[in-house]
């Protein structure tokens, strides 16, 4: 019990690291966007874990006064954060589509090379 008491936080760190690595190291812009989504869901895990309580029920009030409930506040915060992260993803995808249409590629290094070329030609 105590051994795995922080397991959720380890999982959060691992998921976050996988996402962050994909964001930084991957060339493909869509992969970066997916990595960002992963990075953010990792954080959600940390928050939701804060709401968990031994022997609790979902925070929907029942008539029985003996019931104890999980903390609803992190749930609310994460509802907001989920919406924010999907909104960010939508804007990121729109930018990626724009880049694909103007550059013909969504690989970051190829885009950078194309920019370099146009600069050498003299704008």
């Amino acid at each position: 019990m105590t051994l795995l008491g922080l397991f959720n936080h380890w999982a959060f760190v691992i998921i976050m690291m996988v996402g962050l690595y994909a964001i930084i190291a991957r060339n493909n812009l869509v992969k970066k966007i997916l990595g960002l989504g992963l990075f953010q869901t990792g954080i959600f895990l940390m928050y939701i874990t804060l709401g968990v309580r031994d022997g609790a029920a979902a925070p929907i009030l029942q008539d029985d006064p003996a019931v104890i409930y999980a903390n609803p506040l992190p749930h609310v915060l994460i509802l907001t954060a989920i919406v924010v992260s999907v909104s960010t993803m939508a804007v990121a995808l729109a930018l990626a589509i724009g880049i694909r249409e103007s550059y013909g590629t969504v690989e970051a290094d190829e885009v950078a090379a194309l920019d370099q070329q146009s600069q050498e030609v003299g704008c």
């Binding site: 939701i48 609790a56 994460i78 989920i82 919406v83 995808l93 990626a96 589509i97």
Partner: peptide, 30 residues
């Protein structure tokens, strides 16, 4: 983890809307 509303939102927004959005974007991005 007792977060029913978050679960519902993750299923509809995260797994649903976001996936549809990504798939549609992929048809334009490759």
């Amino acid at each position: 983890l007792f977060a029913m509303d978050v679960s519902f939102t993750e299923a509809s927004v995260g797994a649903g809307a976001a996936t549809v959005l990504l798939l549609m974007a992929l048809t334009r991005i490759g």
